[in-house]
Amino acid sequence: MAKKVMIALAPAGGGHLSVTRALSEALSELAPDVTISAVNVYSAEYGVFPVPALPRLYALLAVNSPALWRRVYYSTCSQTRYSLIEKAAQPWLRPTLKAALQATQPDVVVSALPALGYTMQRALRDLGWRCPLAVVVSDLINIHPAWITRGAAWYAVPTEEARLACVRAGVAPESIHVLGLPVSRAFTEPPADRAALRRRLGVPQEARVVLIMGGADGAGPVEETVQQLLASGVPAFPVVIAGRNERLRRRLSARIRPSAGRVLGFVGNMAEWMWAADLLVTKAGPNTIMEAVHCGLPIVLTGALPGQEEGNIDFVVANGLGTLATRPREIVQAVGRLLGDDEERAAIRQAMARVRRPQAARDIAQLILATCEQAGERDSAVQSLREGA
């Protein structure tokens, strides 16, 4: 019988969706008959108020009130304190997850987001299901207690630093697999003809393309950086990915001539833009960092969301994957320096080759499928015992 895998995600940011897409792609390649349900567990389809509003609240805090988000993150960074919060939210969260589970009937649940592990286990218990729960951690360094679920079958983590953080939080070392951060195949396979790709994207062939973004919500000093870059005389062709920040996209579109740069909203072909670019300017989102690493695209970090992303800056700088510049003037200077130094960019690409894990999605998918098989064998054994009784 074909197996069913439910991947729980949230629309907060773009990272959970990227991980889910990469895992779904790998699962479909390895086991075409597997049924994959990517479930937004905060959607109005399953959630009761205020659950569907939580992702939007997160985006508002992270983008518009980072100082307040810092307080929220660190005030809940105690396992005891976070557990109390999640338990207090059970009346709203458990019905949501039970509805999602009943709709998908999974053999294995894969959590691609923090915050709901305990609640997912309670929901499974309410239904009387013995369904394994696996956790795919997408934060590189700082691991919030919301990721930790005592009864999880296993954890897949992207780095050794993440593994150590999980061990310190009480996770059994043998249940942790350091497999890398899953990225879609499009980021691991370079285009056959980069010139043709640039023509299709409408990018000048000889231009030094600088991809500028602030995550899925267009956070950070994107607008100021673009304005100063265009006024600086640095020979760069900026391509701005504004994400879901429609206000930012409209403002920049009104100011940048098509011959001087491009302004886009949320795109579904990020890999193509990374392969076409010469440099990336972005905040320290883990998925964006690792996608750029697999494309060999040098990085200028402009900052990080407080809490979960702060450790990513040290990861990038310590591994030689790029540089940090937080103010628009400093960012423009870093862009000019890197574009003018072929040797430094080559050294960064070599450093990226040492840390990339292009097989991460397939390795995690194989682990998911093995867990499906083990769950099926266990259920068959239980059924045989019942029939023989």
Rank of each mutant, 00 (worst) to 15 (best):
A353N: 04
V51Y: 03
D278E: 06
A162R: 09
A53T: 01
G376P: 11
S111F: 10
G117E: 12
G376T: 08
G376Q: 12
L23Q: 07
L60S: 05
I241G: 08
V41P: 01
T225P: 03
E373T: 02
A347T: 11
P91K: 00
E223Q: 10
L229Q: 03
S380P: 12
T326V: 14
D107S: 02
Y118M: 08
R356F: 00
A276R: 10
S83D: 13
D363R: 04
L9G: 00
G128C: 03
I143L: 14
F237C: 11
A242K: 06
Y82V: 13
A207D: 11
T225A: 08
G14N: 03
P132G: 10
L17H: 06
G215R: 15
P132Q: 02
K4S: 14
G261H: 05
S75H: 09
P328G: 08
T20L: 03
G202T: 10
I256A: 03
A165C: 15
G268T: 02
N269H: 06
A254P: 05
V183H: 08
R249Q: 15
V137A: 13
E206W: 04
V209P: 04
A100L: 03
R354C: 09
A115F: 00
G14L: 10
H144N: 05
R251F: 06
N142M: 15
T76K: 05
A325N: 03
T76V: 05
R200W: 12
V222S: 09
V19M: 00
V178M: 07
R130Y: 02
P238D: 03
E206T: 01
N142K: 13
A44Y: 04
G170A: 14
G117Y: 01
A260I: 15
L324V: 11
V382Q: 14
L54T: 00
L23S: 00
V335W: 04
P91D: 00
P132F: 14
A186Q: 13
G233K: 05
E206H: 01
G268E: 10
D107P: 06
P258I: 15
V19Y: 00
P190W: 10
V316W: 08
V222I: 04
R70A: 14
S24Q: 07
A186K: 06
V317E: 00
N64G: 15
